[in-house]
């Protein structure tokens, strides 16, 4: 088997790749559904209507997609520069911490000032967390994969401490959750459970798109990802660009944490994220790291989660099924990307 690199990837193929990946993942997961005796076709029907079949379903899917857009954008920004940020989970929680610290009584400001302020704080908290692995990588060549992964566990323990200790809500009947954010720090709803965090995610994606396509920094990040030796030779300040990449990547994930606390949950707790940081990797890869693609693939993935929830209730299947489908689509997407970039020729 031989791979010949394509000069350009046709747009149709690039759009088809993630759709094919998800379809194949769904196909591969049918044996798990048939296990319970429900015909797979019926099950996928329930999944589809559960996720996209009604205005209520759409609001569920969009509210589920919002945090995934933020973490997906964060991962995409970092991966484009080949900076392997696997720590979006931790950065997401740090953003949520920022929202709780500033949003629950420390600042007494009207919503129009307070909301932008806590988003900025969330960005800085998340970005600063990722700066540590970035500095370790650029200064002393410590692999960022391991450090970002380990920081996730440290941050979760910090959250655990905060919600059981200093930030604990005394009105929560002993349940470990932080003080709720007041109305001034709450994002307005869009309808159902969907909220303005979605709009902020879309705006962020457009900004990143412009940055990638038009700004020098966006070009430098891409150059480092494509060929670090060539980037060095071209005089790109690699360490500096990587630090900025880290700040941006972690910051985006951090804004996701703010959005989730201010828009949906209303308070910080240990189950704020069911792995949004890790799912963000799948979202970014399905989008082939394109910011606008991230928006679409986040909705796709959210639809799988919301739909699978409906399906597992109907078929009495564990809800981990959704995670299995999503992780299978990541692996399928890797193969899809390969097939869009290369022509496969069987050895004659």
């Amino acid at each position: 088997m031989q791979f010949d690199r394509r000069e350009t990837v046709p747009l149709g193929l690039a759009v088809l790749a993630p759709i094919a990946a998800i379809a194949i993942a769904l196909l591969l997961c049918t044996p798990l559904i048939s296990w319970t005796g429900m015909p797979a076709f019926t099950a996928y029907g329930i999944m589809f209507t559960g996720a996209l079949g009604s205005p209520f379903a759409w609001s569920e899917t969009l509210s589920r997609a919002t945090p995934l857009m933020f973490t997906g954008l964060g991962v995409a920004v970092a991966f484009r520069a080949r900076f392997w940020n696997i720590g979006a989970e931790g950065q997401f929680y740090l953003g949520a911490i920022a929202a709780t610290l500033l949003g629950t009584g420390l600042l007494n400001l009207p919503a129009i000032i307070l909301l932008p302020l806590i988003f900025m704080a969330g960005f800085l908290f998340g970005g600063t967390l990722l700066l540590l692995p970035a500095i370790l990588k650029t200064r002393i060549q410590v692999d960022e994969v391991v450090t970002t992964l380990l920081l996730n566990f440290i941050v979760l323990l910090v959250v655990s401490y905060l919600v059981e200790g200093p930030l604990k809500d005394p009105a929560a009947l002993g349940w470990p959750q932080a003080l709720p954010v007041p109305p001034e720090a709450t994002l307005p709803k869009l309808g159902g459970r969907a909220h303005w965090g979605l709009m902020i995610a879309i705006a962020s994606a457009i900004l990143i798109w412009i940055l990638n396509a038009r700004a020098v920094l966006g070009y430098q990040m891409k150059a480092i990802g494509a060929n670090i030796q060539a980037a060095l030779f071209a005089g790109i300040p690699i360490n500096w660009v990587l630090l900025l990449t880290a700040l941006l990547s972690g910051g985006l994930a951090g804004m996701g944490g703010v959005s989730e606390v201010s828009g949906l949950k209303g308070y910080l707790s240990l189950d704020l994220s069911p792995g949004f940081g890790y799912t963000g990797i799948v979202v970014a890869m399905l989008a082939q790291l394109h910011p606008i693609g991230v928006l679409i693939s986040a909705i796709f993935i959210a639809a799988i989660y919301v739909g699978a929830d409906a399906m597992s209730r109907a078929a009495n299947l564990p809800s981990y099924l959704a995670d299995v489908i999503v992780s299978t689509s990541l692996l399928c997407m890797l193969v899809s990307i390969l097939l869009t970039r290369y022509r496969v020729r069987w050895r004659s």
């Binding site: 990797i281 990541l330 390969l338």
Partner: peptide, 27 residues
């Protein structure tokens, strides 16, 4: 064999294997 990104493939394997284990545990 396919020469795909070792980072992303590894994360994919971790997500798949762990979630399959949790799925069957709940089954």
């Amino acid at each position: 064999y396919l020469g795909l990104s070792q980072h992303v493939s590894g994360i994919g394997i971790t997500l798949l294997a762990a979630n399959l284990a949790y799925f069957f545990y709940r089954v």
